[in-house]
Design a protein around this nucleic acid. Structure first.
Lengths: 130, 130, 130, 130
DNA sequence: GTGGTCTAGACCACG
DNA sequence: GTGGTCTAGACCACG
């Protein structure tokens, strides 16, 4: 169940997108599985259906889910193909920003590596076999 | 010299803030050193002085630089004191988001650790001696 | 309702900041309560929205209010944690300045203590129960 | 000897004005005493003579010192006559601002009264007899 | 409708 | 010349 932080600066729809991706990586959602309809999800999370719709559209564009008219929305096979070097560069850039901010909070490299490992554990190991 | 990506989603003033913090961590700017005036920086980066002013204000609030009475703006002594656990938690959260996105680009943990190390090198190691 | 003294040397946005803090301490604004939008406040006080925005930003950085995704701005739970000795020292310094000026207006210590008490009363006593 | 904090936000000339008033209240400077010339003071404090000049002008307008052409600058008799209710109201207003800020740093009334007493002691008691 | 960002341009105090 | 404040007005993302 995706959790929305209403206090967060991150837009709701982005939180939904990331939350679903996280559940897939964790194996809580498996390929082929049906996810709640826009309206169901909206009422579950107490949010505006438009917001959920926006999130689902984004996930569909990213190839993470697929919508079948009148049937529902389903998790797609997780195929990740290395390739978009531009997107990877962006992530690296964001990582640099995080490291800069962390330094100013007196957090050093070894600790950040520990964080990474913990996060990777949370997501179910390097290889995610469901 | 701070570089601004006019295409980036990140606000200009935040890019300036991060850019200056980066230069300090790299030792390119040292405590006591004068940084360009608001107007100079604005013309260098082809931006409005108000935008630079906003960045400098933010840096001052964060204790990174200090402004002296019509004389200019200076880099402060770098004192980082562990403490703000709330901010640290936020960074951890952003790290999780990055890892999720990275996974979908087929980037795994070992590679991200390598990135971290490279970034840390770029910033001059754990202890930054100028 | 915050009152702005257009004659004052104190910047408008600082007056707004202090005015809102005062209303919170007085219990006129309670945690969770929505405060007027930037535009509303601007038109109420006959000021430019940018000025109000600056005040709200400052209050948010100070942890006094919080902004929620296009929904508005809300008063945060009032948590004051002793700690920033540097800021406390600054206030002490300002108090010294006030005492010096007061002396030159023939106002002595007992009278200033009376003022303090009156002010504290106005703010609802030591413990402010809403 | 007046001390100037070059880091302070308070204008240099105001620091000089307050510093001299403080020394008079403390009895370190007594009526009739000659204070250093603008140039002397400027070199002592390592400041621009224009800044000292501005401070002396302000003190003269306030009736604190008097300048005799070719003779020098002297401390005047300390006559404080209650009267300017407007100025007193301003000080009260600033006191309110200080109390608000103090509250947000978890400093309560009794502590502020202690501060006041300490400050009054530093200035040589309620009645300053030299 | 909400706040966030940015530009343009003006005026000000300080040194 | 320096930064600080303010207005006016524009455009944007989010919900």
């Amino acid at each position: 169940m995706v959790i929305i932080d209403k206090q967060s600066k991150k837009p709701f729809y982005e939180q939904v997108v990331l939350g679903i991706k996280e559940e897939i990586l964790q194996g809580l959602l498996v390929p082929g599985e049906k996810i709640p309809s826009v309206r169901e999800m909206a009422s579950q999370l107490m949010m505006n259906p438009n917001t959920i719709s926006k999130a689902y559209k984004s996930l569909e564009e990213q190839g993470v889910i697929t919508t079948v008219q009148g049937r529902g929305t389903f998790v797609k096979e997780l195929v990740v193909s290395r390739g978009d070097e531009e997107k990877i560069a962006k992530i690296k850039g964001k990582m640099l920003d995080l490291v800069i901010e962390a330094r100013y909070l007196n957090v050093e490299l070894p600790e950040m590596i520990t964080w990474l490992s913990e996060i990777a554990d949370d997501l179910g190991g390097t290889k995610n076999e469901s």
